[in-house]
Write a protein that binds this DNA or RNA. Structure first.
Lengths: 340, 340
DNA sequence: TGCGTCGATGTGAACGTTAGCATTCAGGCG
DNA sequence: CGCCTGAATGCTAACGTTCACATCGACGCA
């Protein structure tokens, strides 16, 4: 670093352009109000000096940080990662930067995370991959700044708006598809019960199998891993053989495929398999996996848009869609639908 | 939002505790210097009011933002996601927050991203998943703030320190392992040539096959997707059948497995397959995949530690290890090693 | 020619914090 | 008893920006 030659300030730009610093400020904030030749001179000076506005000073004066906090689970899952990226890009386009905060593993320290997020002065908060463990952190900040959660949960905590993908509908479409392929019995391997998405998929599944009159069973998992899918499948097979297994996400489905293959069962002839997420690679599993594609990027953009509306003070109900539809992707791991 | 009742300031805390705001500042910054009973009173007032320091004011006065910029590719890949999380946690422990910035897809706007990062006043920058497309952005900021890149490239751009995983060594171990299983010919499906990691794996591969005297060929890809792995494998098979295929990452390996299976080839008896990354799920592919596990979390922590050293002004060579060793994970997609 | 008006720019103050120096007070020593 | 020392605390200024208001000049119209 040595003696860093101090970044140029508005004063420096002003001196070089022969105007006052206020004019520089105006060029940056309301370009229309300043005379074209003056503006050009200022812009030239800015370019020469490589000037960039001091975010801290700006935030201090306006009491708006142009920062949005993104609170996410630390679990490198495909969906959250996709969503985070989409949020970041949308935020940049809206003039915000993203302060990334991940929940510490193990679940403790949640309220501390909330306090930090609050202290960092973010203008709003977006919660990604919401699960129950985040509630303390979210609750702590919801009073001080608008919060939007990307979640399946519709009735949310006080002050928290929810934008999400209609997980229940996704599960429902899976069941309907299985039904049309002639499946009569299906087992759902549910995700961790404290994750809202997992709950919603499970609920959707239960409602759908009742409506369709299928023979169904649900087994719960503690995580989203392939290993869970593998072990639960072995458990299932000990008790009998369903005609289909619906895993709560693609990772678990990988474990399901592995277990079935190990037991010499043919997919989908003996057991059909369905996942959820349409992870990169699902298409090339063996066999390629029928799954539910979620519009992660779209939901990220929608959630950010809604958050921006809230931050801009629009308290009224917004135009943003709140529940985006997922899309069933049929591949080789389920039997062809009967055209009857 | 309505009329948000303005977050409490030091002045408010001071009034409540019956001291001057300077004393409050001291309690926060140098607790030792203030008398215990005064300190307790101040701390009580802080707790009562739910006071949190204003980051912007602090940053303005100290000209340190306590922010580190994390520049990453927007590509939701497993490795980068893992690394990002690890960096965030390590940063929080070191008293920094993470400003996330992803490269816009398509590659244009790189210098604009750099300028924004610079303008946001970060104290240092960490580049994750470095590829050549990031160079303009990195170059733009390297003069103003310390930059550490997590990359395979050892001779980096001026002013950019590099911490990484020894990709070449990983490739080398793969080749040695294949050799020990009796493989004589191997094809490497290289990753995108503008990614430093891909280049390093390729170089390591080429050096190793020369040293081991194997019959080798390299095919390049434009991305890291399963589809590329699939299509390149079909190309390979048209020209002959190697005894092994080494994909540049696990995603591509998924495509390889799929293509081989489609052509009725047995894995590993006809063709052995190796991936790279040890993605969640690699263990449960069919067959479970031999691959190279990278210590993503560890490298994230190491890189952040090094960056903090640089920001603290340690210009001298640091103690942080610069190249961490990957670890070969042998599974069923390669033949057992000969004990000869 | 003088006055009002409006557009363009300059000046002063303030955001909340920290650094530097000034002040206060208690206690020890000559 | 007065002075010095040091610990504890208070006061002032400044960081770079934006907001509110003041100023300046030019132009139009009577």
């Amino acid at each position: 670093m040595s003696t860093a030659p101090r970044r140029p300030s508005m004063g420096d730009v002003a001196a070089r352009a022969g105007v006052s610093y206020q004019t520089v400020s105006r060029v940056l904030n309301e370009p229309g109000i300043v005379r074209p030749d003056t503006r050009d001179r200022v812009l030239a000076a800015i370019a020469d000096l490589g000037y960039a506005r001091n975010r801290a000073a700006r935030a201090l004066k306006t009491s708006r940080s142009s920062l949005i906090g993104v609170l996410t689970d630390g679990s490198s899952l495909f969906g959250p990662a996709e969503t985070t990226t989409a949020v970041e890009i949308a935020a940049r386009e809206a003039g915000y930067s993203v302060l990334l905060t991940s929940m510490p593993p193990g679940g403790q320290g949640a309220d501390q995370v909330g306090a930090e997020l609050l202290g960092s002065g973010v203008d709003g908060i977006l919660v990604i991959a919401a699960h129950a463990g985040m509630d303390p952190a979210v609750g702590a900040v919801a009073q001080a700044a608008p919060v939007v959660a990307i979640s399946a949960q519709t009735s949310a905590e006080a002050g928290v708006e929810v934008v999400g993908i209609d997980q229940g509908r996704g599960a429902c479409e899976v069941v309907a598809h299985l039904r049309r392929t002639g499946v009569r019995s299906v087992v759902h391997l549910a995700g961790p019960p404290d994750w809202f998405d997992a709950r919603a998929r499970r609920c959707g599944f239960e409602a759908a199998v009742t409506a369709e009159g299928l023979d169904a069973e649900v087994l719960g998992s503690e995580d989203w891993t392939p290993r869970s899918g593998y072990e639960l499948t072995l458990q299932v097979l000990e008790r009998g053989r369903p005609e289909a297994i619906f895993a709560a996400n693609d990772m678990m489905a990988i474990g399901v495929l592995h277990a079935l293959h190990e037991r010499g069962l043919r997919i989908p002839e003996d057991v059909a398999v369905v996942g959820f997420d349409n992870t990169l690679g699902a298409e090339f599993l063996l066999p390629s996996l029928t799954t539910v594609a979620q519009p992660f990027a779209e939901v990220g953009r929608a959630a950010l848009g809604h958050l921006v509306e809230l931050m801009d003070g629009a308290t009224e109900a917004a135009e943003t869609p709140r529940a985006l539809p997922p899309r069933l992707v049929v591949r080789r791991s389920t039997r062809p639908e009967r055209t009857h």
